[in-house]
């Protein structure tokens, strides 16, 4: 997408203090990387009225404070525009001015996963459904580079795109009341990792010993939208020994 397209915004309000931005043609395919870069750019510039910027798939959602936006407007502007419209104008000019500083290459992060057994109770069934051997299912799951399309559902939970089509799985008919932290699951055409124990309906195929969310860190979520990740199969012994390192 060319730079001029970048500032061609398609915006709709999300209530009275947030808006959802799509870049370029609204029908353009999702580009989570570009959305993540845009959100990051807005955060770095950090206008005072901006409370948050969060990217997901093909959108950036901006939470703003209409009172602070109003305070930044002249008397004349106030009679012409709503804080919502002023915010759009500000975002447009920021992106137009700053697009050349867009973030660099995405990070590539390896996530160790112990597949199957007690860590991946649904692996066997998932492989059967996919008409694959367990081994090929795991190899396929661990082969692509995935993109974090968004962090959502709970703190640090990555929604990953890039799942090989043949690995798609339906959600479980009745969700588990407790999915252990670190569980790697598949739902529809997406794969993801549970940072906390929680109820959940994804098919569980393995578990990572990595901590995805650490509230004491400056960057609490291990992963960010736009990151690339790879799953690296590890054995049960490595999984159990992980904490000792």
């Amino acid at each position: 997408m060319s730079n001029s397209d970048r500032t061609d915004l398609c915006v709709e309000p999300l209530g009275d203090r947030a808006l959802v931005v799509r870049l370029g043609d609204c029908k353009a395919p999702a580009d989570p990387q570009m959305m993540a870069d845009t959100a990051e750019l807005l955060r770095i510039v950090g206008p005072e009225w901006m409370e948050d910027a969060v990217s997901a798939y093909d959108t950036v959602t901006i939470v703003y404070d209409p009172v602070k936006v109003l305070a930044s407007m002249s008397e004349a502007e106030r009679s012409l525009r709503l804080p919502y419209e002023q915010t759009i104008a500000q975002v447009e000019s920021l992106l137009h001015r700053e697009h050349k500083h867009a973030a660099g290459r995405p990070r590539l992060i390896d996530i160790p996963v112990c597949y199957g057994g007690a860590y991946g109770p649904d692996l066997q069934e998932a492989a059967e459904r996919a008409e694959l051997s367990v081994q090929s299912f795991v190899e396929l799951h661990a082969s692509p580079e995935y993109t974090v399309a968004m962090i959502g559902f709970m703190p640090g939970f990555p929604y990953l795109t890039g799942l090989p089509r043949e690995l798609s799985q339906p959600r479980k008919a009745s969700p588990r009341s407790r999915v252990p932290a670190g569980s790697v699951g598949i739902a529809g055409g997406q794969t993801g990792i549970y940072p906390f124990s929680s109820p959940g309906g994804w098919q569980l195929i393995g578990r990572t010993p990595m901590e995805l969310f650490r509230s004491a860190e400056e960057e609490p979520s291990l992963l960010r939208a736009g990151d690339r990740i790879r799953f690296v199969p590890i054995g049960k012994q490595q999984m159990e020994a992980w904490g000792d390192r």
């Binding site: 948050d52 969060v54 990217s55 962090i151 703190p155 640090g156 969310f213």
Partner: peptide
């Protein structure tokens, strides 16, 4: 805690 939605924090 505004400002942490990027990390999925409400």
């Amino acid at each position: 805690r505004p400002g942490w939605r990027r990390d999925g924090i409400p």
